Amino acid sequence: MRFLHISDTHLGYQQYNIKDRERDYFDVFQEAIDKAIEKNVDFIIHTGDFFHSSRPSNESILDGLYLIKKLKDHKIPMFVIPGNHDRGSGTRDRNALEILSEFGLRLLNSDFVEYNGVNIFGLKYISPIHFKRSIILKDILYNLYEKATDKNNFNILMLHLEFAPVFSSSELQTISDIPFEYDYVGIGHYHQRQEPIKEEGRYVVYPGSTEYTQFNEKSYIEKGCYLVEVGGKNIEKIEFVPLNARKFLSYSIDYSEIDKFLEDMEKDLNNLNLNKKPILSLNINTQENISNKDILRILESKNLADEFLHIKIFVNQNKRDISDDTTSSNTESFSAVEKLKEVVDDEELRIKLEEIFKMAESYENVKDLEEFIKHHPEMFEI
């Protein structure tokens, strides 16, 4: 028996408002589907964030339907759990995954299904704040496991949660909060692929996202999915299957070295043999009075600007004056909000974080802020 593990496809994400980026997310998802068909897998598991939004465009829903039909034609079911991006905003909403489930997608919210002698368990995304208040994950997962009628089957668990150490602020631990009755634990939500981890006989696998979504992702780590072969209760092989994601190139340099850097970058572009124009992030450190437009004009003069689909330039002017020592707290807060625009590409997430910063700024003491947080936990559900 073999299956493909994919995650965080974010279908419909029109990053930087560029239509080509929206197609990138579809193309790489379709490539994963084609790999599953080529490898003749028995089924696919998808560990959340199928769509980028709980209310995707009609075009994105049609793209999802096309992929599900393609799998259905080859008799390959796909089992999916809702990630944080897939969730509807209320009980009256029907999210897009529920629509696709009417056409063959196998949606597991907090459910169990037995398929061809394999137990597949799924738990939808739960905000970290709920675990801190009253929910004990281990109890939920034990109760979920008890739904299985044949415990001797190979047991797959699908999660879209924040675990330490990949999420440094999380209190959840895979080794202590996930029962060892599960033979394969597939986890979404973390976009940086990890090598499969073996814990006392079972495997914990983070496939990462299928496309780059942030400049802070390590571009030298390939995007892809995992092909898993199982014999009885044992995993016989886990193979990484690379996908053709568009490359993100990120550099940080001193302005005084820009000419040499651009010469080297031109050589790099020629050596990489890319079949898609990459996305460039250029962080310039300088004490001179230059702007983003100045740097862009330099790139254009070297005929390099057209080599990239999108360019983000950050100019850090390392000047210091007397006013730096008397910066007000409001200015510091404003700088933090401005910094979000540089490091957080996801517009929905950035807007939410800006709301939190501005709300915190409005309180004059920590006690009042703590009281607000106590009565408005939903404010921090990201």
Rank of each mutant, 00 (worst) to 15 (best):
F180A: 00
K341D: 06
I45W: 05
Q30M: 14
K132Y: 07
Y115Q: 03
K124D: 14
I99E: 07
L97N: 02
M78K: 03
D264G: 13
F43E: 00
F215G: 00
N143T: 03
K233H: 00
R21Q: 05
T91L: 11
V241W: 10
K277S: 03
D111N: 15
R21I: 06
E347H: 07
K341Y: 08
K339S: 13
L144A: 06
Y363K: 03
L4E: 00
E263I: 13
K312F: 07
A36K: 02
D20C: 14
I129E: 13
E371K: 13
Y182G: 00
S170F: 05
D177Y: 05
D93W: 12
M265P: 04
A148W: 06
H189F: 03
Y25T: 15
Q30P: 13
G224A: 02
V205Y: 00
L280R: 04
N143A: 05
P77I: 09
R202Q: 00
T213Y: 13
G231Y: 14
E114Y: 00
F103D: 05
E217H: 11
K341T: 08
F50K: 03
R92Q: 15
I135N: 05
H130L: 09
M1I: 08
T286H: 02
F163E: 05
F131V: 04
D42F: 01
F261R: 06
F3M: 02
D42M: 07
E338T: 14
S127V: 06
D294E: 09
S256L: 06
E370A: 11
I135L: 13
R133G: 04
E38K: 14
H189A: 09
E239P: 05
T149I: 08
D177R: 01
F26G: 12
